[in-house]
Computed example of a mutant assay.
Amino acid sequence: MVFKVLILKRADLEIEESFLYYENIRKGLGEKFILDYKDHLKTLYKFPFFEEKYNVVHTLPLKKFPYTIHFTIDELEKIVSIHAITSNHQDPNITRIKL
């Protein structure tokens, strides 16, 4: 079973932003991020049924970078729609709970 993968505008912008972030850290690191992301896209073409979080939204974490792909699946049309690529990194200098 092969699915079509659609990358929505928000996700496309997040991928570009992440690429630029890593390229600014070190030349070529952004390209490694893109390669890791594309490896995961190949998986979604064949088998998109990963962890279902948030009711109908599925997630797939990247292996080499702290990011997660958020997507929905239309089983009838065989379409995977990527809605977001979010960073899993948390800044330890930011305290979320105020004491």
Rank of each mutant, 00 (worst) to 15 (best):
L13M: 07
T43V: 14
T59W: 05
L6H: 15
K46Y: 12
G30I: 04
F50M: 14
I34S: 12
E51G: 13
Y37V: 00
F50T: 15
L62H: 06
E16C: 03
G30K: 04
K4R: 13
E31V: 15
K9H: 11
L8N: 12
P48Y: 00
L20M: 04
K46V: 11
L60H: 00
P61F: 06
E23P: 07
G28N: 08
E14H: 13
K27F: 07
P48W: 02
F33M: 08
L8R: 15
L20A: 04
E16H: 05
R26M: 01
K53T: 12
E17L: 14
L20H: 07
E31C: 01
E23C: 10
L60Q: 04
K42D: 12
Y37L: 10
K42S: 14
G30N: 05
L8C: 14
P61V: 10
S18Q: 14
N55K: 12
T43W: 05
L60A: 04
V57D: 06
Y22P: 04
I15H: 02
Y22K: 07
K53L: 15
R10E: 13
N24F: 00
E16G: 01
I34T: 07
Y54V: 06
K27Q: 12
Y45I: 00
L62A: 12
K9E: 10
L29R: 00
I7S: 04
K38A: 05
K27P: 05
E14K: 14
T43M: 11
K4T: 14
K4L: 09
I7P: 08
H40Q: 05
H40Y: 06
E17I: 10
T59M: 11
G28A: 06
L13V: 14
L13Q: 14
I34W: 11
L62W: 10
Y21A: 04
I25G: 03
K38G: 01
G28W: 06
E51Y: 08
K4Y: 09
A11Y: 08
G28H: 04
K42Y: 09
K53Q: 03
L44P: 00
R26F: 03
